[in-house]
Design a protein around this nucleic acid. Structure first.
Length: 480
DNA sequence: ATGTAC
């Protein structure tokens, strides 16, 4: 509806702008990174109206930005970036998303896909499916003693290493070492902690997965070598988040902040943008709870990876498991304090990935020469990408790039077009082994429900915010 | 995304 009236000005080959003058309530312009074709898809939903809504929030600086994989979400669009001045600005749970620190971790095996063989592949898939719990509302996570969940919320995956789960180098290869400062378990409700207590090391459902892959193509030779990736190699991509715990944190603070809007004199075009001043008690409490949920999510992917190593050890041997490296782990649903042009801001990235360029002190030393690794999970049965951050991200997008293919069809519409078991047969016919807890969940993630991931990453490369390194194709997938 | 509706 309203999308038809959005006035877009093309700025360059990959950037469009909606000026702040487009609506009386916009404080800053909205910019869209895309190409003509992706833009046409983006205009098919409400995401650009949502982006303009975000541009009305108090303290928003410079411009709100849409990545080429943007689609509509809760209040904020998924695939949106908004930076708020730390003094004047607000923090919004909807700007982070219900799945706090949903993110992606890549493991690299010291083995080529060719060397695996059909029989060991099926056994590896069975072992993975047996060891890594998938599905909604299911427990089966790492058993925790009293106080240990609170330690994980405070410190992240480092706590699990102390328990003998995973390794120091896994933690070193996480964005911000798997920990956001200022986490406070006391800011996380009892209910949220109850929901999370048996979910550490579980995948969940929706678009979450554990995928066995092959490096199909190397595009950036030098960066690939630096990241320890080569053509033909086996990898495992883990996509999950903070499960019920993060979901409950979002629910709790959306409600709390909604009740305070009038008192803080905040007027919103959409109540789903519920927010509070960064400096307010509610804002600080949310940030402390968000950090705790983010730390939980990093520990979750760390624990999943440890179980993946167990499955690898069982089928391919202890040595292969020990030589399986965590390449890196990125968050794509989180808010972080960063500085741009000497200005301190809180960058909300929802369905968007930090992508710092080469030389950034935030990147592990061994990767500093090539830029921060970024993983872009494609839709099920299609490709995924490894990118590295490029200088344009700092200049144009608050150090950010895209996060995935971006949904094109609703879950309901996807379900109407194919049955999960039929999809499973189609994937198997293409050599992709599937282990799924739910046929319905499978149908919702059908490849045709998503935009073309190759096109999305091509655009972010042309925009100069990230560079392509390798293309990964699925060998097998474990899903909720 | 989510004990897919407190």
């Amino acid at each position: 509806m309203a999308t038809a009236t959005v006035s877009l000005h093309r700025i360059d080959a990959t950037t469009w702008e909606i000026p702040a003058s487009a609506r009386p309530d916009m404080r800053v312009p909205a910019r869209i990174i895309a190409d003509g074709e992706l833009l046409a898809e983006i205009r098919g939903d409400e995401s650009l109206v949502q982006l303009q809504n975000v541009a009305t929030l108090p303290g928003v600086v410079d411009a709100v930005i849409a990545m080429p994989d943007i689609h509509q979400g809760y209040g904020f669009p998924v695939g949106g970036v908004a930076a708020m001045d730390v003094e004047e600005g607000v923090v919004s749970p909807g700007g982070v998303g219900y799945d706090i620190n949903c993110g992606v971790r890549l493991l690299a095996l010291p083995l080529d896909a060719d060397e695996l063989g059909a029989e060991r592949k099926e056994r590896l898939m069975d072992e993975l499916f047996a060891r890594v719990p998938v599905g909604t509302g299911r427990g089966g996570g790492v058993p925790l003693r009293p106080g240990e969940l609170e330690a994980v919320l405070r410190e992240g995956p480092r706590v699990l290493v102390d328990k003998g789960i995973g390794r120091d180098d896994d933690v070193e290869h996480c964005e911000s070492r798997g920990r956001i400062e200022g986490a406070d378990p006391a800011a996380v409700s009892q209910r949220a902690r109850e929901r999370g207590h048996d979910q550490l090391g579980t995948v969940g459902s929706g678009n979450h997965f554990v995928e066995l892959q092959r490096v199909e193509r190397v595009v950036g030779e030098q960066a690939a070598a630096t990241l320890g990736l080569r053509e033909g190699q086996l990898t495992v991509l883990i996509h999950s988040g903070s499960r019920g715990l993060g979901h409950q944190v979002c629910t709790d603070y959306v409600r709390k902040m909604d009740a305070m809007l009038a008192r803080y004199g905040i007027r919103l075009p959409d109540r789903q943008l519920s927010c509070a001043p960064i400096r307010s008690p509610e804002g600080r409490a949310y940030l402390a709870a968000m950090a705790a949920a983010a730390n939980f999510a990093w520990a979750n992917r760390h624990a999943i990876a440890a179980r993946v190593r167990e499955a690898i050890a069982r089928v391919l041997g202890r040595e292969v498991a020990a030589a399986t490296q965590t390449v890196y782990d990125v968050a794509h649903n989180v808010a972080k304090f960063e500085a741009y042009a000497e200005r301190r801001v809180l960058v909300h990235r929802k369905g968007a990935t930090r992508a710092f360029p080469a030389g950034s002190p935030e990147i592990p030393e061994r990767y500093r020469s090539c830029g921060q690794p970024v993983f872009i999970p494609g839709s099920m049965g299609t490709a995924s990408w490894v990118l590295v951050g490029a200088p344009g991200s700092v200049e144009r997008t608050f150090g950010t790039t895209c996060h995935g293919a971006g949904r094109r069809l609703s879950r309901t519409r996807a379900r109407k077009q194919i049955h999960g078991r039929e999809l499973e047969r189609q994937l198997a016919a293409r050599g992709i082994a599937v282990r799924a807890a739910s046929a319905r969940g499978l149908a919702e993630e059908a490849p045709f429900a998503y935009k073309e991931v190759d096109k999305v990453v091509e655009v972010v490369e042309r925009a100069g915010i990230a560079r392509r390194v390798v293309r990964l194709v699925p060998v097998g997938v474990i899903k909720g």
